[in-house]
Design a protein around this nucleic acid. Structure first.
Length: 278
DNA sequence: ATCTATGCCTGGTGGC
DNA sequence: TGCCACCAGGCATAGA
């Protein structure tokens, strides 16, 4: 499940392969992946060259000649490169054809991925990118900002860290890691967090995501940045996914539960929930 | 305004 | 072995 580090890894990998290339044809085989009209998408993208790439939250942003192409990998989206004419697998739902007859194919078993075209000049000030909160490394991400956003939120901090309109780019895995490193219970309600805890969360978000980016992301069953390109951060995960594991800090059993419908790993000894003041 | 439930999807898993 | 119900999970949307 790609989160910010994985999306950055995909972006860097793709840049080497497609920057400067012209899309001469495009075929969509699953309508729901396209936000808007499929045939308009196919027609509009034809003839445009990929001039630059970046990320915003978990979105990939491709700057084309006229438009910006936004792609969200959601759970299992990835890209494969094939020669024109090679058989299309049943999970390849969008095909971009380049001039040299090479194809970039969007592969997505679950069909949860999304893509759309947005006017290039306004891409950051229009939906969906304008609804995103700060990036993890944005200096504007401060304690004051978080305390203000959290003040009205009675949901568990685990859920609130997944809110892309506050901090963009955190997903279920790094969420657990950040809270574990911060010694904060995932159940703790966001509006009860202190300034010191906000400081810790900011610090650990930066530590975890930066290290994961350095290591090319986390390869957990469904992620590879491109065919055969795997990240290494899974070896660094302290808590997430360690079913029946022990806490690397205190040696007690790691607990697995559900918060807001998401699988959550935490150490009940290191991450103690503080009771709300009466 | 905030929060919860539902739908989108399919491969993998566990029960029988 | 085969069949089947159930589940994960980011995010938009509808409803409470």
């Amino acid at each position: 499940m790609p989160e910010k580090p994985e999306v950055i890894t995909v972006c860097k990998t793709l840049e080497k392969q497609i920057l400067g290339k012209k899309i001469v044809d495009c075929h969509v085989y699953w309508d729901n992946i396209i936000v808007g009209k499929t045939n308009e998408f196919e027609e509009k993208i034809k003839g445009q060259t990929i001039e630059a790439m970046t990320t915003r939250g978990k979105w990939l942003v491709f700057f084309l000649s006229q438009d910006a192409l936004l792609i969200h990998l959601r759970m299992e989206g990835r890209f494969y490169f094939r020669k024109m004419g090679e058989e299309r697998s049943k999970h390849e739902h969008v095909v971009f054809v380049f001039e040299n007859q090479e194809e970039m194919r969007f592969h997505d078993v679950r069909k949860f991925g999304k893509m759309m075209l947005v006017p290039k000049q306004d891409v950051f000030s229009l939906r969906p990118l304008n609804e995103l909160g700060y990036e993890f490394d944005d200096p504007m991400l401060t304690e004051e900002y978080l305390l203000d956003k959290w003040q009205k939120k009675r949901l568990p901090i685990k859920s609130v860290l997944l809110d892309q309109s506050i901090i963009a780019g955190i997903g279920n895995i790094y969420d657990d890691e950040i809270l574990f490193l911060s010694h904060i219970s995932p159940f703790q309600r966001a509006n009860t967090l202190t300034r010191e805890e906000a400081t810790l969360i900011i610090k650990n978000t930066r530590i975890v995501l930066e290290k994961a980016i350095q290591m090319g992301g986390t390869t957990i069953k469904s992620f590879e940045s491109s065919e055969g390109v795997h990240g290494l951060f899974q070896n660094e995960l302290a808590i997430h996914g360690r079913k029946n594991g022990i806490c690397p800090v205190c040696g007690n059993r790691i607990e697995v539960t559900k918060i807001g419908g998401r699988g959550t790993y935490y150490c009940p000894f290191c991450q103690i929930e503080k009771k709300e003041a009466a």
